[in-house]
Amino acid sequence: MKLVINGKECELLDVQTIADVVAHYGLTGKPLVVEAGGIVLTAEQWGSALVHPHMQIELVHFVGGG
């Protein structure tokens, strides 16, 4: 499926939910936050949140800052 992840077009095979996308990048269990189609999702929602072709997904995390 074609998706736009962190601003880049990607072709991911066998992904149906946000949890699948997170797993695809090996990020399961890591502290991160997901926004999909403009909606912020809590970790509990990832398993049931379906991805659609060309969906815009942001995978973000906390970095050092002041």
Partner: peptide
């Protein structure tokens, strides 16, 4: 701290 996109090309865990 700040919030940034995860670098999906690098495996480094910089969280």
């Amino acid at each position: 701290f700040a919030i940034r996109r995860i670098n999906l090309e690098s495996a480094r865990d910089d969280s």
